[in-house]
Design a protein around this nucleic acid. Sequence first.
RNA 1: GGUCCUGUGGCCGAGUGGCUAGGCAGAGGUCUGCAAAACCUUGUACGGCGGUUCGAAUCCGCCCGGGACCUCCA
Length: 499
Amino acid sequence: MTDSKLYIYNTLKRERELFEPLHPGFVGMYLCGPTVYGDAHLGHARPAVTFDVLFRYLTYLGYKVRYVRNITDVGHLVNDADEGEDKIQKKARLEHLEPMEVVQQYTLAYHRNMGQLNVKPPSIEPRASGHIIEQVLMIEKIIEHGYAYISEGSVYFDVKRFEKDYPYGELSGRVTEDLQHNTRELDGQSEKRNPLDFALWKKASPEHIMHWPSPWSEGFPGWHIECSAMSAKYLGETFDIHGGGMDLLFPHHECEIAQSLGANGKQPVRYWMHNNMLTINGQKMGKSLNNFITLDELFSGKHSLLEKPYSPMALRFCMLQAHYRSTIDFSNKGLDDAEKAYSKLSDIYLLLKDMNWNGTTVNLEVEKTLSSFEQDCIDAMNDDMNTAIVLSNMFKVSTNVNIFSTSGKTEGVSKETFEKFKNAYCTFFTDILGLVPNESAAQSGEEFGNLVDSLLEVRNEAKKKKDFTLADAIRNVLSKFVTLKDSADKTSWKHEKKK
RNA sequence: GGUCCUGUGGCCGAGUGGCUAGGCAGAGGUCUGCAAAACCUUGUACGGCGGUUCGAAUCCGCCCGGGACCUCCA
């Protein structure tokens, strides 16, 4: 357990594996990013936060990490009713905007939301539309190697042919024979030799606005090729970590593997990582179910299912409290709990940040608790990124910090251990888990702070004179804006957004 | 229908063949003019039925419930 090496669950192997990067000291990771045809919703937040924490942790471990997260701004079908119309094109028509205008608008919105969640920007954020050439070149290679065929100006991946040389379905545990029976009729099916074949390039129908020239037709790339082409370009034909939601396991990631093997003859990814999905009040989130919550709606509280606005950090915390491979159920109660719990750890952070060692004795138990804190957190992260245990460790030490704070003495701990612990707590809170401390007095603005302090002076005067009616009246007024904490000698306060 | 995951105390949510998860809520107490905050104490849970084992909530089988994917989806 304390062997202090990172183990991650590899979907390909279906077990935890020791993480060893291809090139010592360097890590290449790729995450399937958003399709920018609509507002970012709760579902976008999960992989973004999950792999943000991984990115941060790998960096903390000393790796030089290149993190690539794409923006999908071409292709992708909506559903049967849309007859294969390009998502982005459809939206553009509805809003009478240029497709790239829509892309820009939602890309900026996505970035804004990610910023609110304190998700770090990736090292490279490539766009599918900017890598048409790379995709065409990759398709050509696949054709050359005999794993794809041209049909009516479109190019399809030949799964049957591919299966003669490589296994297909390993990642998702699919057996092609079973899939045959369960495949539905889709647009363009007649052009395919086999229902399992998937498009690498699609000829654009006349009403398609977004299309590019290619050796086969004016058209657009297939649904899966962009990730293969862009990950290979920036991370190499084989790289370390590929992440995404479990829903992308099949067909998306399966197809990525097939394409890369077909083009380069190499397994593209060494560790496949998949975050689980989320539900709303126990139900799958989906537009048709009317429980689809965008991040803007969550942060503003403007959604019929929400009782109040929830802060980005409440959401982030909520996700960190669960393991990334478990489903998370969102509810007002769950978010309320997360908000309170987060606020508690945030208070501890703020107290600790400005605390200096001034102890006189060493208590074995306190010393032990605080000295093992850092290693306990590292062990938890090393165990397939168990952020829930990290948070649990943080709660365990919160009592110690509160006692230090109320007593004004860091009693029971050696200076060395205290410094190490303080540093570890702050590092894990902000740098690794990526939490931003709650708005403190200092951040509320000087004037606001002065006003509160002045009122508290009056209240303390009143208290001295035992005029509790006045003192309580002031407290009642203030409690609409801040939370007061009376201690023996002074009253501290915390700015909090009230319901 | 096929493939796979899952069922933990009031709620959320880790974990796991014998040793404390944690949070929220609740109860009692300390402090306090009162309250809040903080601190102390308190809960003996692992869907059901069998099996393996010295020992299972943890492994196996069956049953029941929930979910995901198989079609764009994070």
